[in-house]
Write a protein that binds this DNA or RNA. Structure first.
Lengths: 229, 229
DNA sequence: ATCACATCTGAGGGGAATCTGAGCATCACG
DNA sequence: CGTGATGCTCAGATTCCCCTCAGATGTGAT
């Protein structure tokens, strides 16, 4: 599994890399937030997990986490000396999957990396592997390129719109609950009560020009109607 | 989201339940490992997350975690006073998704619960077997899709109607008491005295066009007649 | 810095789902 | 057969959920 290590201290990074490599990880090292984001962008979800040290020179580590979360769904483990509860909660709510305080035990860190990646490993392969393009009647959804076309005509979707559509399209016919959709598409947990989800559904329906494709299931959530079999 | 709290101390459980409920979780409380496993089995993956206290009276908490992991993919957060690194690693390697040491900060616990459940990909209910569809004579009930058809014809049900039918259909022939039905379908325990339940039963019978399917058991409740075996 | 665009928020409204209450039907039992 | 208890039907009343719209805020590119 590929692992992105974001850490400005070369000595620490080298030592940790060695340990991780010994446990079967392919480690990529980034020395700053900028470097980390660049490493992530072209690959999409190529990394299985990100180890993010918060004591970075160029930007606030929390910001970096937020940006990572906006671009990919790669799990993030924050590593930092800031032990106070407030920081931990802040980090976790920004979308981090775990928060480890220095000094940590290497064995525990490994166990936590495994725990986090256990949840996401099965996701990666089937998505990029075989099909990579979903077909639903006139709608074609290409996961790798994030391109969607309806009856041959390419439709430009925004990030959220695409994520939303892709989620629903993974299981045509099954009903996704609102909370489920929100937690999948909007990775950060929030208490928001806004009409965000509806707005995005609306714009999807408008852009696809197939208002019936996404069916709302009152009191539960939404679903894609399965194409005529 | 539904949450299973496994904790033998009633006081702790009550306090925690209150907090969790205030943050939107539907909490089910189990006092022992046995109880926890029983709560999990019939539901399949009905719970979004399990909070597992390791200081249980009847069995070793680690064992419980292992058993949970074997039956469902529901994420588990271990909560315990055992702070040593060895225990943490052990817990995480048994399949726990996170490991929180007492005394913990409630806010952090909440943040961790969110972090874990955010990451969980709700899978099909593998426990329910083939397609998670219930068949009762001419009636077909698909849980994930929330679709019901009678003799091939799709029937549109509202949320309550579907939940009601799905509940009864899980154990054909078994009588459900009114209070039981109400507490399951209307997740809030309420003092209501209206004719609500009857109304919904009536509309179900009307829509399914099989008035005999749901049998009323006078003075007790309702049940589905088992299909001709 | 500026601009274009994506995303979020809040108010307002409509409509379906749900609830309520009164009267009616049915059942159990003497 | 009479009586009370229980369940059923029906039609409003009400609540809840979702949609639309318009503007505010945030973000990335130039």
């Amino acid at each position: 599994m590929r692992l992105l290590l974001v850490e400005d201290d070369n000595h620490v990074a080298a030592a940790l890399s060695a340990v991780l490599a010994r446990h079967g990880f392919q480690v990529t090292h980034a020395r700053s937030g900028e470097e980390a984001l660049q490493a992530l962008v072209p690959e999409g979800d190529g990394f299985g997990v990100v180890l993010l040290d918060l004591g970075l020179p160029d930007q606030d580590g929390y910001e970096v986490c937020g940006k990572i979360r906006k671009r990919t769904s790669t799990p993030v483990i924050m590593v930092t000396a800031r032990a106070d509860v407030r920081s931990r909660i802040h980090g976790l709510n920004l979308g981090a999957d775990d928060y480890v305080v220095k000094p940590y035990d290497t064995g525990e860190l490994l166990a936590r990396i495994h725990a986090v990646s256990r949840r996401t490993v099965p996701e990666d392969h089937p998505a990029e592997g075989s099909g990579a393009a979903l077909l639903l009647g006139p709608v074609r959804i290409e996961l790798p390129t994030r391109q969607v076309s309806v009856a041959g005509a390419v439709v430009q979707l925004t990030r959220k719109e695409f994520d939303l559509l892709a989620l629903l399209a993974q299981r045509p016919g099954v009903v996704f609950r609102r909370e489920q959709i929100i937690s999948e598409v909007w990775r950060t947990s929030w208490e928001g009560t806004g009409r965000t989800l509806e707005v995005h559904v609306a714009s999807l329906r408008a852009k696809l020009r197939l208002p019936a494709l996404i069916e709302t299931v009152r009191g539960v959530g939404y679903r894609l109607v399965a194409p005529a079999a």
